[in-house]
């Protein structure tokens, strides 16, 4: 779970932990990149605009390293080009803020069940 906004990390990680998942929280792009490479993730939820790296840059770097876990992009950016670019890079979903946390958790659960 990578987002520089603390409320997102606090609330989403609470929902995910309540659903039985183990959650790693990071607040910047470089930490997210490292976590993806080193922690053996099943799924990542990343913000598009973070200090250090853009979400799309992180997805591109993971894919280049052969890391194929699903990535959900969670962002306030409502720009069609960014959405398309995210999916082209292999994002599993693109969710715009404001967000319904229960629905997002259900989507994540569904994706992990399908894996």
């Amino acid at each position: 779970m990578a987002d520089d906004a603390a409320p997102v990390r606090v609330l989403l990680s609470r929902h995910l932990r309540a659903a039985g998942h183990e959650v790693i929280e990071v607040a910047d792009g470089m930490a997210a990149l490292r976590a993806g490479s080193e922690a053996g993730l099943d799924l990542a939820v990343i913000d598009q605009l973070m200090p250090g790296m853009l979400g799309t840059e992180i997805i591109a770097a993971w894919r280049e390293d052969g890391l194929e876990f699903p990535v959900f992009v969670l962002t306030a950016i409502d720009d069609d080009d960014t959405v398309v670019h995210s999916f082209e890079l292999g994002a599993a979903d693109y969710i715009r803020k404001p967000v319904n946390m229960a629905e997002l958790t259900a989507r994540i659960n569904g994706r992990l069940r399908d894996k």
Partner: peptide
């Protein structure tokens, strides 16, 4: 500020 951040983030019942 914290309340505003949560208000911007959430929709639905949590909002």
């Amino acid at each position: 500020d914290a309340v505003i951040e949560y208000r911007h983030l959430l929709s639905g019942e949590e909002r």
